[in-house]
């Protein structure tokens, strides 16, 4: 399970960073979303990976650490708000600057699809 979990995090962050380095706001938003998924998964794993263990004392033989779960919940909420803000900002930038390039100009680089 550890191998699968770390592979998933690795692939998600690699795709996220690749998209983040593109020149268009849409791919950047998708990249940020993927990166935040990877980060949230990573945060869950900091309490150790267990199956069939609830974060309640007495409910299972070895209760899971509740703190990473609380942290990841906070991180998800914040990440959600930030994504919403970023989408609105990108639409606003598209309207103000006339195109969706991050530098506000139709560049030759980064426009390959």
């Amino acid at each position: 399970m550890e191998l699968l979990f770390s592979l998933v995090i690795g692939v998600l962050s690699a795709s996220g960073i690749y998209l983040l380095l593109r020149g268009r706001t849409f791919s950047i938003i998708v990249g940020l979303a993927l990166l935040s998924y990877a980060v949230n998964l990573f945060l869950v794993s900091t309490g150790g990976l267990h199956t069939h263990s609830a974060a309640v004392i007495g409910a299972s033989a070895a209760p899971a650490d509740p703190l990473p779960q609380a942290l990841v919940l906070t991180a998800i909420v914040i990440g959600f708000a930030m994504s919403a803000f970023m989408v609105i900002l990108a639409i606003r930038a598209r309207a103000e600057l006339g195109n969706d390039h991050v530098d506000g100009k139709q560049g030759e680089e980064g426009s390959t699809r």
């Binding site: 940020l32 945060l43 930030m82 803000f85 606003r92 103000e96 530098d103």
Partner: peptide, 20 residues
């Protein structure tokens, strides 16, 4: 808006690193 876009994206990446 142009400067703000860069600022927001950079800080979002910074936040991701912070959580890691």
């Amino acid at each position: 808006i142009g400067a703000g876009l860069h600022y927001v994206v950079l800080n979002l990446v910074g936040s991701a690193l912070f959580i890691i």
